[in-house]
């Protein structure tokens, strides 16, 4: 299938670029660690309150660090007019969109893979569970989706580093609420059934936002 082959080509290209520079992952990772440090002192994070605060801290870290990666990823396409190269190729706009979303999702998941064990160790909360990982995946997917669209807009504006969070955060609110609540419910001993309402919020958000982003992405790219 041509669609899938080209989508994979875009993902491979992003992975290859990242292997050469490691700038996206390292930027997100270092920034996440710094945030952890700041939150630890700001909230005086110790075991007694860790369980209530940890989900919020985790997701705030992911959301903030995510903007760095999203910005870099789309800035790469902007530099040297690479995005024109993609638009000139005989491929659908949706293959470009899904390719970029998948790449951004992958990079964020890799950073989370480092963050989760660290979190568990530092604050003594059990995050290494399939249900928590599912929530992480769902939340990250929706965030990467809308984030890719917003970053594609932001890299074309003045002051792009400021513009991305300003555009993205208010739109990502349902993800943040849903993910924090679901993670919180699971961390305090609940099962997936107990947080089903929040998981549903994440699933609905992912579906709706991906559909809308997909339809509008083409309009962002071509002038």
């Amino acid at each position: 299938m041509s669609f899938l082959r080209k989508l994979l080509a875009v993902i491979n290209k992003d992975i290859a670029a990242e292997m050469h520079t490691r700038e996206i992952i390292s930027a997100m990772l270092v920034f996440s660690l710094l945030q952890l440090l700041i939150f630890s002192f700001a909230l005086d994070l110790h075991a007694a309150i860790a369980e209530t605060v940890a989900p919020g801290v985790l997701w705030a870290t992911i959301v903030f660090a995510g903007t760095l990666g999203l910005n870099r990823s789309l800035a790469r396409e902007q530099r040297n007019s690479c995005i024109d190269g993609l638009l000139l190729a005989p491929m659908s706009r949706s293959a470009i969109f899904f390719g970029k979303v998948a790449g951004n999702f992958l990079f964020m998941v890799l950073v989370e893979a480092a963050l989760v064990p660290l979190f568990s160790a530092l604050f003594g909360v059990a995050l290494f569970r399939l249900s928590v990982l599912l929530v992480l995946g769902l939340g990250t997917l929706g965030y990467a989706s809308v984030g890719t669209l917003m970053a594609a807009i932001a890299v074309n504006t003045r002051a792009r580093e400021v513009m991305l969070p300003v555009l993205l955060f208010p739109l990502a609110l349902p993800v943040l609420i849903g993910a924090v609540q679901a993670t919180g419910g699971l961390v305090s001993g609940g099962s997936l059934v107990d947080v089903a309402a929040w998981v549903r919020v994440l699933v609905v958000y992912d579906l709706v936002i991906t559909a809308v982003s997909l339809v509008t992405f083409g309009y962002v790219l071509e002038g």
């Binding site: 290859a16 530099r79 040297n80 690479c82």
Partner: peptide
């Protein structure tokens, strides 16, 4: 004008 080349590759 743009080379459409990825600097990182």
């Amino acid at each position: 004008h743009g080379t459409m080349l990825y600097d990182e590759l």
